[in-house]
């Protein structure tokens, strides 16, 4: 992808700032998401909590389903490819989705290499647990970053851990004499040029969303107050008792994240949230955030 195309792809993510991107598994869900004020939808066959429950290999969704969802809404449509599965990404590019999520929620196809995203014209968003992962993905061509969190748990603790880790490392860099950057970058696996950029900007050079475990308006506002540019909600909406109401409430809380009275109002009368999972109850092998490097 040339520089201009990459800039356009980063800029599409800039348009999504302050918004909520929702996982949907059907045309009906996609329409509910759009009407509730989602800024984009992530088209999937199964939401992460079902992937977690059912196990097996999770792959790119049926392109036919993604095409139907694309047809049904005017907001951007994103879809997931497996880590390293550049042919799934080629298919999604041919399908002309708006953004590809190279996602740890699906079963990785390659345990050494992520997709070389610079070979594509289509934009990619990738998950990160720390600044090193974020900057390596950007170096590979990602135009947007999100926290990994722990998808499908309804438990925000991992997303909080990841954004706090990224931000702590950014603050360290921003306050560092330039001669210390080389060693810090080496120790943490930061591409050096990008480390210098982050030091200068005092943040990631691309939009950074929260993802993984967000289930309530308060979770969304928490991630925004911690410095995320917007929020992905996966299982949190359509696994809850009243999806349309909860979707709109999370949109409201994300827009007014700094206004406790409005977040309070958004939190009322939503019915029950998705059932949550304690992270320590998840067997080690089923921790999704560990996928990718």
């Amino acid at each position: 992808m040339d520089k201009k195309r990459y800039e356009l792809n980063v800029q599409l993510a800039q348009m999504l700032k302050g918004g909520v991107i929702m996982d949907v598994v059907s045309v009906e869900h996609a329409k509910i998401a759009e009407e509730s004020g989602a800024v984009a939808v992530m088209a999937l066959e199964r939401v992460p909590s079902d992937i977690r429950k059912e196990g097996g290999v999770a792959r790119m969704s049926d392109p036919g389903l993604i095409a139907q969802i694309k047809e049904a809404v005017s907001i951007p449509v994103m879809a997931k490819a497996r880590i390293g599965h550049f042919v799934e990404a080629q298919i999604l590019e041919a399908l002309k989705v708006d953004y590809i999520d190279e996602s740890e929620v699906l079963t990785p196809a390659d345990e050494e290499c992520h997709i070389d995203k610079t070979r594509f014209a289509i934009p990619f968003v990738c998950g990160a647990r720390n600044l090193g992962e974020a900057l390596r993905r950007i170096a590979e061509g990602a135009a947007m970053i999100r926290t990994k969190g722990e998808a499908g748990t309804g438990n925000v603790v991992e997303a909080v851990r990841h954004i706090r880790t990224v931000n702590k490392e950014i603050r360290q860099l921003a306050n560092m004499p330039v001669e210390e950057v080389t060693g810090f970058a080496k120790a943490n696996g930061f591409p050096y040029e990008l480390a210098l950029q982050v030091r200068e900007l005092g943040r990631l050079p691309v939009v950074n969303f929260a993802a993984g475990g967000i289930a309530t308006p308060a979770d969304a506002a928490l991630m925004m107050q911690l410095g995320c540019d917007g929020v992905f909600v996966g299982s949190g909406i359509f696994k809850a008792e009243n999806p349309a109401k909860r979707a709109e409430a999370i949109v409201k809380a994300t827009a007014y994240y700094n206004d406790p009275a409005k977040v309070l109002e958004a939190s009322m009368g939503l019915g029950s949230a998705m059932p949550g999972i304690e992270i320590s109850d998840i067997p080690e092998a089923q921790i999704l955030a560990k996928r990718g490097w």
């Binding site: 348009m15 909520v20 004020g37 989602a38 800024v39 709109e248």
Partner: peptide, 10 residues
């Protein structure tokens, strides 16, 4: 710029 459906709803 942003998403018009989201903005109009808010």
């Amino acid at each position: 710029g942003g998403e018009s459906t989201c903005l109009s709803r808010l």
